[in-house]
Amino acid sequence: MLVKWIRCTVVDRHGFKRGQRKWAGLLGEPGFRAQGGGWSRGAPDVAHVFAFWENRVFYDSFMARGHDRLAAPQAGTYKDLSVQLFEYRFDVKTGFEPDFTDADVVRVAHSRVYEDRVEHFTLMQQRVWNPAMAGSPGMLRGVFGEAPGHEFLVLSMWQSSAERGKYRPESIARLSARAETEKDVETLGGDVVRLEPSWTV
């Protein structure tokens, strides 16, 4: 499975939201699984969109054929576009499905990992972080993906921002120490995204 993560700063909110509805045209595209997104909780003008495809072949075919037609209505409504693709590696909680309908919040963590620490980082995700997240109230499902250049994405879906708030500083500091995250990770970024139901395809 391929995970596409799009970030941009919206300059015309109304036009962007109107254009976002056009992405319903993805339905029926060969290999398309789901798409959803919303607004950054920390930076209100930043939008995030997450799309899931069966594989790179289906995705590349869509980009060559139908993408520009669907994207055209949003032209001029945003700036600072960033698009990254990640190959699915494993579930964060068993039985991952790209389903946005029961989630309120998506948490996205993006890491660039030192080359000689990739194996350790991946192992710690499975042994330390995954069980902690899977056991957190309100955590529905998640996915761990990898991109070239030792970059990794952890995308997790939560039932509400209140539940997401319970998974906070003390426990994260303890887990980071146990996983030796500082030794593994060169850069770490991320965001908490409040989902817009009307963007779900």
Rank of each mutant, 00 (worst) to 15 (best):
T94G: 13
D68G: 01
T77D: 06
W129A: 08
N130F: 07
V105T: 15
V92G: 05
G66K: 12
V106T: 10
G76E: 05
T94I: 02
N130D: 11
N130S: 15
P131T: 03
Q125L: 06
A109P: 00
R89F: 01
A147R: 13
R69L: 02
Q126V: 00
Q125H: 09
Y78L: 15
F96V: 05
A71H: 12
E87A: 13
A72R: 15
P98N: 12
P73C: 10
V128P: 01
T94P: 11
F121D: 04
P98F: 14
F100H: 05
E119H: 08
A71N: 08
F96S: 03
G66I: 05
Y78R: 12
E87K: 01
L140I: 15
N130K: 06
K79Y: 00
E87H: 02
R141L: 11
F100P: 02
L70F: 07
G145E: 08
G145T: 07
D104T: 03
K79N: 04
H67R: 12
A71K: 15
W129Q: 04
S111H: 15
Y78V: 07
H67S: 02
R69K: 08
H67P: 00
D91L: 11
H120P: 00
D99V: 14
E146P: 00
T101L: 08
A71W: 12
E115W: 13
F100G: 04
G135I: 00
E87F: 00
A71D: 07
V143S: 01
V105Y: 05
Q84P: 00
R89H: 07
P137Y: 10
Y114W: 14
H67C: 09
A109L: 12
F144H: 11
N130Q: 11
M139K: 03
Y78N: 02
S82H: 12
R89N: 02
R141E: 11
F86E: 05
T94S: 14
G135N: 13
A134Q: 02
P73I: 08
F96G: 03
M124T: 09
A71R: 14
N130G: 09
G138P: 05
V92Y: 09
G142Y: 08
G145S: 08
F90W: 03
R112S: 13
K79P: 01
A103E: 08
R65L: 10
K79T: 14
F121I: 07
G135L: 07
